[in-house]
């Protein structure tokens, strides 16, 4: 059975991510234990709420080093919602807070949005052929966010976008580092398919 570590750093709703992975057929641990994380097949960084608050919790809990170490060790890594935003360097939401800096660029307020936050189900359009999103073009996922990654034209890591006033980055990939702005763990069957894709990546079967 694939072993997934859902990083526990004391923020909001973490249980749903762990449960969704269990339902998808993984052994999922909600943990900040170094040995447990580094012996996992894949690592998940959930996140809700304020970027600065999450960034501070990452540092205070020691999970920041652990996350970077997991990536350095080549473990597949999935950031969800603010967990994806934390892959970047900074966010306009909390200008003094530091993300993990695994992806170049910053996170900024949604532009031309009919409502802020975007709090709805939305369809994603795939770019390229990421194993994370295989079979999921035009599927609907649940989004709740006011900020999103800035388009980076020099180094594109975008694997999916959605339309919300203008084009919004919905998912990213750089090597084995993945991020989804939406919540796969709350997106019904489409979300389950995505989590199963991630488990295949963890098993190295794709």
């Amino acid at each position: 059975m694939v072993k997934v570590a859902v990083l526990d750093y004391g923020i909001g709703n973490l249980r749903s991510a762990q449960k969704a992975f269990e339902i998808s057929g993984a052994e999922a641990h909600l943990t900040a234990d170094k040995d447990l994380v580094l012996t996992s097949d894949g690592v998940v960084l959930p996140g809700v709420g304020n970027f600065g608050k999450c960034a501070k919790a990452l540092t205070d809990s020691g999970v920041r080093e652990l996350a970077l170490l997991a990536v350095e060790n080549g473990l597949p890594f999935l950031g969800i919602c603010v967990g994806m935003q934390l892959l970047y360097e900074t966010s306009d939401e909390s200008p003094n807070a530091k993300g993990l800096g695994l992806l170049t660029g910053k996170v900024k307020l949604l532009e031309n949005a009919p409502r802020i936050p975007q709090m709805q189900w939305n369809q994603i359009q795939l770019e390229g052929d990421s194993p994370l999103l295989r079979g999921l073009n035009d599927e609907w996922f649940y989004f709740v966010h006011s900020y999103a990654a800035e388009q980076n034209h020099l180094q594109s890591t975008t694997i999916a976008t959605c339309v919300y006033g203008s084009s919004v980055i919905a998912a990213v990939q750089k090597g084995l580092i993945f991020g989804t702005q939406f919540h796969p763990e709350k997106s019904g069957k489409a979300g389950q398919s995505l989590l199963q894709n991630f488990l295949k990546i963890c098993e190295r079967t794709v």
């Binding site: 909001g12 709420g49 304020n50 608050k53 603010v82 936050p117 966010h145």
Partner: peptide
């Protein structure tokens, strides 16, 4: 909201 975000 300060603790968990406005979205919740």
């Amino acid at each position: 909201a300060a603790e968990f975000g406005t979205q919740c």
